[in-house]
Write a protein that binds this DNA or RNA. Sequence first.
DNA 1: TTGATAAACTAATTATGTTAGTTTATAATA
DNA 2: TATTATAAACTAACATAATTAGTTTATCAA
Lengths: 191, 191
Amino acid sequence: MGTRRNLDAQTILDAAAELAEEKGLENVSLLQVAEKLGVKSPSLYNHLSGVQELSTGIAKLALGRLEEAIRGAAVGRSEGDALLAIALAYRSYAKENPELYKAILRFPDCGDSDVQEKGHTVVRILYQVMEPYNLGEEETIHFVRGFRSALHGFVSLEAAGFFRGNGADVDESYRQLAFRLVSSLNMEKSD
Amino acid sequence: MGTRRNLDAQTILDAAAELAEEKGLENVSLLQVAEKLGVKSPSLYNHLSGVQELSTGIAKLALGRLEEAIRGAAVGRSEGDALLAIALAYRSYAKENPELYKAILRFPDCGDSDVQEKGHTVVRILYQVMEPYNLGEEETIHFVRGFRSALHGFVSLEAAGFFRGNGADVDESYRQLAFRLVSSLNMEKSD
DNA sequence: TTGATAAACTAATTATGTTAGTTTATAATA
DNA sequence: TATTATAAACTAACATAATTAGTTTATCAA
């Protein structure tokens, strides 16, 4: 007993993320995470301050991976192409990692500044892609907010089970949404 | 002790909703609700099956009120006017009842069919408003899904604390988002 | 008046998060 | 090498929440 393991915050969060995808986000408790790591739950307090930090940690981790996925989708494309690719990657990520995506939704009750930072990182990719459009800074911000909102909203509602039963093709609904927004950009360009 | 009160499920849910707005959704526990009603928590089980039913109940209640707000905004308007008015009402509701709106977000972990029903009711108003556009049924579904997603996504991200610090006017971002989508409809119409 | 029922109660159980205080392994130092 | 400081585990205990079982009481109908 009392044997030293090589635990640290990152290891704990990785285990928590794995647990989330295995058994559902709602079953990620300190007890379960500790068990998965072969440790008693109070030991986790040596590495993080409590369950809230676990929550924000998982959210950051999930956002970080989403960011990677999006960056991967954007590389080598530009303007509308890039935006549409990002949109598809965004939804793919959410479908492939539903529990982690939920972790992003269930923000630790509003406003951890680090989570917002990461959120901004996701958004920064969008800013880069938007550059060729040469909108003003304000206009770019407006569009990026809206675009991200649309992706997030669609994916969230879909994950929550809306859009079922209703016959029409969900992929197509999503594609159209992204396309409408991207098209509205070309509009402004030609002004 | 043991005095009969006139409790029923609706009274409990109303109290829970009030409590949510007073002290935050995360502090809505059976204990707190019971206390507010001058009753012990196990007594609540005479009227509902547990904390999950409390959760779904609050979500339904919140959706019901959102529905009213939206219906109120749509009446007497048509097409783009109606869509924009609905958009503004949607966000106003979320801002005025932030805890209740969170209750809608935090779905009782996916897919209670009644909650989806109510969700559909919200959406049905959108269908009515869309009629004059004379799109096909499929096209209407696609648009409504996207429009609702955009509203929901924007409002959620805003409530979660994104869009802060960043200088641009949030009202304007929202207005633009709604306007882009509505404009894309006029596009199709003129085809 | 009596008896059935609904709705409250008390008491106890389980689960989770958390704190306090203790022990032990490891790494640095005398 | 022996010692000691520290980090990281532990045990034990407590608080709060949800829940269940079983009990009591108010009210209404026969």
